[in-house]
């Protein structure tokens, strides 16, 4: 039955516009980075074309494969938090928006399995998005003929991006919990975006390594994973567990009007 739950969630996602919207949005991002690399590499031409303002300051920026990879990882981490929040809020929130939650929760299937099924589908779709993003990005990078290309750079970029993608996903159940609790997309998205804003604040207060959203941002900004204490990873795992258990308990024991 668990397989059927995942399959039905896949069918629902396949027929939804959100699938293509998220794919389109995520695949646009590398083009933005590419444009940035191109500007940094040839600022005079960019200025001639009106792409640079008079106060533009490109000091310290470089158009190389390691820099390009760094930006890609940042997009997967920070952008992933937003995109995943959107995907998860949609998967859970549509059941309330369409009024189908009541049909789903009174079926002969453990309610927790619906939460698990939706998160499995979110993970699957997120994986597809990240892989497509990386493939597209590397093609663009090769097209730009950036200096510093090597197998080591590619490997470390892929490893960092996948690590950030995984870390971002660990916060997906928290968004699921917020959606089930509020029974709407908007509140969940608000909470996710608010958490992201808080992550920036925590970065300035010295508590960033304790706040899960900050941890993902630190990972995505190229700070070596060794720089983070083990407790930061524990915080991520605890957030994942709390989100999952909370969502399951709310579906199982809460009122579901």
């Amino acid at each position: 039955m668990t397989g059927q739950v995942v399959l039905t969630e896949f069918i629902k996602l396949k027929h939804s516009a959100v699938t293509w919207v998220t794919l389109g949005a995520f695949l646009l991002a590398p083009w933005g980075v590419a444009l940035f690399m191109w500007i940094v590499r040839d600022p005079h031409r960019a200025a001639d074309l009106g792409l640079l303002g008079t106060k533009a300051n490109l000091a310290g920026l470089e158009a190389t494969w390691p820099a390009f990879g760094g930006y890609l990882v940042m997009i997967v981490g920070a952008g992933g938090l937003v995109l995943l929040a959107f995907i998860v809020a949609f998967l859970f929130g549509r059941e309330y928006a369409d009024g189908t939650a009541k049909n789903l929760l009174a079926l002969p299937v453990g309610r927790t399995w619906f939460a698990v099924g939706k998160l499995v589908i979110a993970a699957g779709w997120w994986t597809v998005l990240v892989i497509a993003f990386l493939i597209e990005s590397f093609c663009i990078g090769l097209g730009l003929a950036l200096p510093g290309f090597s197998a080591v750079v590619v490997t470390s970029t892929v490893a960092d991006a996948l690590g950030c993608a995984g870390a971002a996903f660990l916060l997906a159940p928290v968004v699921a919990l917020a959606t089930v609790w509020s029974r709407s997309y908007l509140a969940a998205l608000g909470i996710a975006l608010g958490a992201l804003a808080m992550a920036n604040l925590f970065a300035h207060t010295g508590w960033a390594t304790w706040f899960p959203w900050s941890v993902v941002l630190i990972l995505s900004q190229g700070v070596g994973q060794a720089d983070l204490p083990w407790t930061s990873y524990l915080v991520l795992v605890l957030a994942f567990a709390a989100g999952l258990v909370g969502t399951g308990l709310l579906l199982r024991f809460g009122d579901n009007p």
Partner: peptide
């Protein structure tokens, strides 16, 4: 709940799925 069929309040379905697809989801889950 396998032995129970129900309709609660307003009629609802997945608007992007066809009639047959909506029923197929139910078929799979029951």
């Amino acid at each position: 709940l396998r032995r129970v069929g129900f309709l609660v309040e307003t009629a609802t379905a997945y608007p992007n799925l066809t009639v047959a697809e909506n029923l197929d989801l139910q078929r799979r889950l029951t």
